[in-house]
Amino acid sequence: MGVVASLVIYLAVAVFLIGVGRKVYRYASTPAPLKIPTTPAPVTRTGVVFRMAREVVFFESLFKASLWTWVFGWLFHAGLFLTLLTHLRYFTQPVWGWVAWLAPLGPYAGMAMVIGLAGLLVRRLCVDRVRYISAPSDYLMLVFLLLIAGSGLTMRFYFHIDIVALKQFALGLLSFDLQSLPGGFALWLHLFLVSVLLIIFPFSKLLHAPGLFFSPSRYQVDNPREKRHAGGSRRQSGGSGG
């Protein structure tokens, strides 16, 4: 079991890194022929860093758009972020101090994810406008993430697993010294779904994560009169859309 699981995880991580890497390369090397920031926009590079930070950390635009979507969306993403950090305890030996300090927050982060995802799912089902624009994959993605978060939480509260063995497995992955995977359906499901998620990441709307950083309406500096934006040919403007 340990070898099979390890290979699946390696495959998933490879597909994720190569797939997202290729997309990011493609985004970076595609020309941005014209200046199209949504204004009012910052007039300096520093200002853009702050604008982008507000988008990434607080979802500023979404907050302006729809309070409920913002509440659920932000809860989910903040929960996910915290969860990823707390998972570092499986991969660090000795566990980093701040990771250990965050650990007690793990279950709450997981619950925030579930609440957020459930809210988004209900909204997708009940608001006629959102239902109209939803494809099967949009529902599946939410169900998928709910199963990942749910299976993780059940291990915490009901189906306890052998944490020591799990950590050996995780550290084994990092050092290419494959270890056996402790038993438990919830754990297997959890790891399997996470692997599948990593694999579909580069081929799905999950690309919104790297996409935001390459969105000209957000990252461009509003200075077309002060500084000529050399557009047109691919060579000229590739990778220098600012």
């Binding site: 997309k23 493609r26 985004y27 595609t30 020309p31 941005a32 199209i36 635009s61 979404l62 758009a65 729809s66 979507t69 969306g73 988004l120 909204r123 997708r124 608001v127 406008r129 959102v130 624009i133 939803s134 494809a135 949009d138 709307k205 690309l207 919104h208 996409g211 935001l212 390459f214 969105s215 000209p216 309406s217 859309g241």
Partner: peptide
């Protein structure tokens, strides 16, 4: 770049 990112990134959030 804009068009490509815009076509890839929409998550159908409904905002």
């Amino acid at each position: 770049r804009g068009l490509q990112v815009y076509l890839d990134s929409c998550v159908k959030c409904g905002a």
